[in-house]
């Protein structure tokens, strides 16, 4: 686990006074949070507190929802994300969803999908990317002879790994994961956590989770949200051992209790 104080390490991604609305309902209220580079930050909190909403505003996926609006700032490397092209933003800030959403295409085409939509078409280059991405999620040995197989035939864990590989294939800088293990069994969950620990060497990772133990196991920093507000943010060891706010303490002890 990271030493205290590395909260001050440079923020790859940050929000300032971020509010998100669905119509007139405010799901995220004035959240300021900094996601340090090359570290895993967990967002925890009870159901409906706005975790997914916060996460989905970071790569502007919230815009798919009719009536969703944001106020405040989101900064990627210090630059407002609304000044970036949205396609470029989503390429740099990748996302993995709760349910593995592999496309009904072959394993190869799934991984090559991102590079292709960004204009890479040379077979040799794509083959390289596919191999590298599958190796990064440790699927290569299992799947190298089944690249032509439809990805929907894989196990849940394989599909979720595939989705992570698919995201890595476009060479993102930030990885957003919204309860990536909730459709997986405990063993597969541990495997994915291992994988995340490896990936943080190169990527800035934000993970939303319902699972306290998971947050404690895998993350360096933790933010606790309640009713749309960010109640507390700190290193994971501090949040779990010495929470400053009674709400945080209640939530954590309630969950662990």
């Amino acid at each position: 686990m990271s030493p205290e104080g590395s909260v001050n390490s440079p923020a790859k991604l940050a929000t300032k006074n971020l509010s998100v609305f669905y119509g007139s309902f405010q799901a995220v209220i004035d959240v300021g949070i900094e996601f340090p580079a090359c570290a895993i930050t967990a967002i925890i909190g009870p159901s409906g507190c706005g975790k997914s909403t916060l996460l989905r505003s970071l790569n502007r996926m919230n815009e798919l929802i009719e009536g969703a609006k944001i106020r405040g700032e989101i900064l990627l490397d210090g630059k407002n994300i609304y000044q970036l092209n949205v396609l470029e933003l989503r390429k740099r800030v990748g996302m993995v969803f709760q349910r593995p959403n592999a496309f009904p295409l072959s394993v190869f085409d799934n991984i090559a999908y991102g590079p292709r939509v960004h204009g890479i078409n040379r077979r040799q280059k794509l083959t390289e990317i596919v191999e590298r991405s599958l190796k990064a999620v440790r699927l290569w040995d299992e799947l190298k002879d089944r690249l032509d197989q439809n990805a929907l035939g894989l196990t849940d864990e394989q599909r979720q790994r595939l989705c992570i590989a698919r995201m890595l294939a476009v060479e993102p800088e930030v990885l957003l994961l919204d309860e990536p293990c909730s459709a997986l069994d405990p063993i597969a969950t541990l495997h994915i956590e291992d994988l995340l620990r490896q990936l943080k060497e190169k990527y800035t990772i934000v993970i939303v989770t319902h699972n306290m133990q998971q947050a404690a196991r895998v993350s360096d920093f933790t933010g606790f949200m309640l009713l749309g507000k960010l109640i507390e943010f700190g290193t994971t060891s501090q949040i779990f051992t010495r929470p400053q706010h009674p709400e945080t303490e209640n939530y954590i002890s309630g969950r662990f209790g």
């Binding site: 790569n59 470029e88 989503r90 390429k91 969803f97 959403n101 496309f103 939509v117």
Partner: peptide, 21 residues
């Protein structure tokens, strides 16, 4: 819907998402 989301989240355009996925 998850296919569409998956594609858009990779930085694909709506049109690419529509005809490729």
């Amino acid at each position: 819907l998850s296919y569409k989301e998956g594609s858009l989240a990779l930085g694909a355009t709506r049109w690419q998402t529509l005809y490729r996925v």
